[in-house]
Design a protein around this nucleic acid. Structure first.
Length: 458
DNA sequence: TGAAATGTTGGGGCG
DNA sequence: ACGCCCCAACATTTC
């Protein structure tokens, strides 16, 4: 009689889950648990953090399904390094199954958990699930990790088309779930208030059902993705980022969706998935990028931006409509279109001259889909301090970008109602509008300073 | 997944 | 018909 524990973390689904599938097939009875990690929770600044609601919704859905199978989810609250071994000892479980996470904190945590369990004679098994290829699988001719995206992508695709005839799917036979009811009933609508959570009202609901709905919806327009994706008002992106972040949808399901329609749009979307894999690989192989510039000499950059400007950027009060609209959207919804992320990141770093790490932290606080690897990679790309970053002299002009990607000002009008009556021509760079701030800096002057700042390091 | 300055080309207006 | 200028439109260079 082999009793297993599958520890869910950022893989909140019961279908196509590698660790769960293996736990179920290799054991006689499998328990499922999720830990609200107090170390992570205590680092959150906001009790109204949207992501907690998303996670709770995902867990509620899982609990409902488990109850249909006569099982239940075990919810723990504490430090996983203590909680997981305690649970396994209490229930006399034989082996732990989990999917690997490539963030520095998670790697250290999992290492500690394993060490404790091994001391208790409990076996541990970890699996690749969160990415399609792990860092060791995609390397260049001389056995090194890629530093440039395009050759990485080529190798990724070559590997994919040469080796993988099909995208694997992991079966999760539900009959082997433990007949068990957890200590906390996640269906009870207010149990989380006991540990200090407050539920938020979000535009998107957590869980696999809603993720699948989004994917189904996106499939209809995926063939146009390459033409429409850059225009925030069109909402032509998949909006799946939060679902892939929490694992409501598996990476294999995403890749399958990209492969099923042969089109330019689907290729470009797959490309974005490969960017995600690229940054996961970078974080796994270079954990120091969490706190430092990938190109370490840029840790010396003298960011001279003012605190007040940072506040204005956060609050969407810079006087540059596209930037302000984007930030208000982020603050109100926890989401921001990718094009806008690039615009506001370029603006913060190269126009306001504020360290990318401050912007990266702000996004970490606000984004529903926040993922350390992608967020850090994206910010360092924009700030020109990272792997395969844009050259430092590539500086976005917020007005030009606005004219190009929101030509009719539709996105701006949605989030800056005080500008609603301006013409398409005026709206990108308004003057003397009541209730709307004048530009807090001169783009032209700041651009010169940015170039100087980088030249000092070069 | 720039922007802006500078250089080149070619068609049209006009003396 | 011709040269000259103007100026888009496009290409190249620079940061």
């Amino acid at each position: 009689m082999k009793k297993n524990l599958c520890w869910l973390r950022r893989d909140l689904r019961l279908k196509d889950n590698h660790a769960l599938g293996r736990a179920l097939t290799e054991g006689n009875e499998t328990f499922l648990c999720f830990v609200f990690d107090t170390r992570i929770l205590s680092s959150l600044n906001d009790p109204l953090d949207r992501r907690l609601t998303f996670i709770i919704e995902s867990l509620q859905e899982i609990e409902k399904q488990l109850q249909d199978y006569g099982s239940s989810l075990i919810i723990l609250h504490g430090d996983p390094v203590e909680e997981i071994p305690r649970l396994m000892k209490d229930k006399n479980l034989d082996a732990l199954y989990y999917n690997r996470d490539y963030e520095p904190y998670a790697k250290l945590r999992d290492q500690k958990v394993e060490k404790k369990l091994h001391a208790l004679n409990i076996k541990t098994y970890s699996f690749k699930d969160h990415v399609f290829y792990e860092k060791e699988e995609i390397k260049n001719g001389s056995g090194k990790y890629y530093q440039v995206f395009t050759p990485y992508k080529n190798k990724w695709l070559e590997t994919f088309y040469n080796q993988e005839k099909v995208v694997p799917h992991f079966n999760c036979p539900s009959e082997k779930l433990a007949k068990h009811f957890g200590d906390k009933n996640v269906l009870r609508h207010d149990w989380w208030t006991e540990i200090g959570f407050i539920k938020t009202k979000n535009e998107i609901k957590g869980g696999r059902e809603d993720g699948k709905k989004k994917l189904r919806q996106f499939r209809k327009s995926i063939s146009h993705y390459h033409e429409t994706r850059d225009f925030p008002f069109l909402n032509a992106t998949s909006h799946l980022s939060a679902y892939i972040r929490m694992g409501n949808i598996s990476i294999r399901e995403m890749i399958n969706a990209a492969l099923e329609t042969e089109s330019k749009g689907a290729d470009v979307w797959l490309n974005e998935i490969i960017w995600r894999e690229f940054y996961q690989m970078i974080l796994d192989s270079h954990p120091e990028v969490e706190k430092h510039c990938y190109r370490r000499q840029y840790d010396q950059l003298k960011w001279e931006g003012k605190k007040k400007d940072f506040q204005d950027w956060c609050n969407g009060k810079t006087g540059f409509p596209i930037v302000d609209a984007a930030m208000k959207c982020l603050n109100a919804t926890g989401f921001m279109h990718n094009r806008l992320r690039m615009i506001v990141a370029s603006f913060l770093t190269k126009t306001l001259l504020i360290d990318w790490k401050k912007g990266e932290r702000y996004f970490a606080e606000k984004l529903m889909d926040y993922d350390l690897a992608s967020n850090n990679g994206g910010w360092q790309w924009c700030a020109s301090t990272g792997v395969d970053a844009q050259p430092y002299f590539r500086i976005f002009n917020p007005v030009t970008q606005s004219e190009k990607f929101d030509p009719e000002g539709e996105f701006i009008r949605k989030w800056c109602p005080e500008l609603i009556y301006l013409s398409n021509k005026e709206i990108h760079s308004p003057h003397d509008i009541e209730d709307y701030p004048a530009p807090i800096v001169s783009y032209q002057e700041q651009k010169v300073k940015a170039l100087k700042m980088f030249k000092l390091i070069e």
